[in-house]
């Protein structure tokens, strides 16, 4: 059975498993949904009081917020096994079991669980994008929709890579590190607002080191059709999501290093 088919099989099993715990799943999905709405509510509260954010409107910021939430949700959906890697696999030694099977560890972990509760963030994220799109009266053109889809694909790769990196750290320390929350939850929060409001160092960090802005701010500015106060060209904005895929490549390399370390320390 090839990798893709096996992944699908894993995922269908995971879905059935989750349906056995329906109440938990519903609660968790609801929690995610509320989380996403709360982020938006927080933004709304500030707009209600202050009226504007350095010239950006509420609908524009909502677009950033909705897109990054939806993107993150898909990335998280696919990377649940990595997200829970420290507690479920390293602490228990169950990672041995994955190593004992003749398949790639990344495939097995991606198939660990398709956590449906993440839909709780995906759906409102998409609705927010749709609503903002309508409110801003952006023309529904193929290249805009295509660019948004491309940005989200790059974003999924980006967030998946973050989860892989987070899991990799578990090979070095057994406590799951909150450090990566900076980049996951913190990334969602950061990318919910336009990049120019941040300090120069943060802007550079999120463009060149951890390319969060390349899958959020830059392409979405192009989708919105506004001039970037930072002065980037439409060309750059459209190509920026590629950085998400490059980031995934780096993460895969780091993961292999981690596995090598695990097999030489056994913990």
């Amino acid at each position: 059975m090839n990798a893709a088919a096996l992944l699908l099989r894993y995922l269908s099993i995971s879905l059935r498993g989750q349906l056995q715990y329906r109440a938990s799943f519903l609660m968790a999905a609801l929690g995610n949904l509320l989380n996403c709405l709360i982020e938006l509510a927080g933004i709304w509260v500030l707009f209600d009081r202050f009226g504007t954010l350095s010239g950006w409107s509420f609908a524009e910021v909502a677009m950033f917020c909705g897109a990054v939430n939806a993107t993150y949700a898909i990335g998280e959906l696919l990377a649940t096994g990595f997200d829970q890697f420290g507690t479920l696999y390293v602490k228990t030694g169950d990672f041995d079991r994955l190593l004992l099977r003749p398949r790639s560890t990344v495939l097995q972990l991606a198939g660990h669980e398709l956590s449906l509760r993440r839909l709780g963030r995906l759906l409102p994220g998409l609705v927010i994008v749709g609503a903002a799109w309508a409110a801003l009266e952006i023309p529904l053109e193929a290249d805009r929709v295509g660019l948004l889809a491309f940005a989200m694909a790059g974003g999924v790769a980006f967030f998946f890579a973050l989860m892989v990196l987070q899991a990799t750290m578990c090979f070095w320390t057994t406590e799951s590190l909150e450090l990566m929350n900076i980049l996951t939850y913190g990334g969602v929060e950061t990318a919910s607002y336009p990049l120019p409001i941040y300090h120069r160092l943060f802007r550079r960090f999120f463009t060149f080191v951890v390319p969060l802005a390349c899958i959020g701010y830059f392409p979405i500015v192009a989708v919105l059709g506004v001039d970037d106060p930072l002065g980037t060209s439409p060309m750059f904005q459209a190509a920026a999501p590629l950085a998400g895929f490059a980031f995934l490549g780096v993460a895969m390399g780091v993961w292999q290093l981690g596995v090598r370390r695990y097999t030489s320390t056994g913990s």
Partner: peptide
């Protein structure tokens, strides 16, 4: 697999191996 019937675990292992 904790939540799966035994036979389904077997089938999954067939695909894995």
């Amino acid at each position: 697999w904790w939540d799966l019937p035994v036979i389904e675990s077997f089938d999954l292992l067939r695909d894995i191996y």
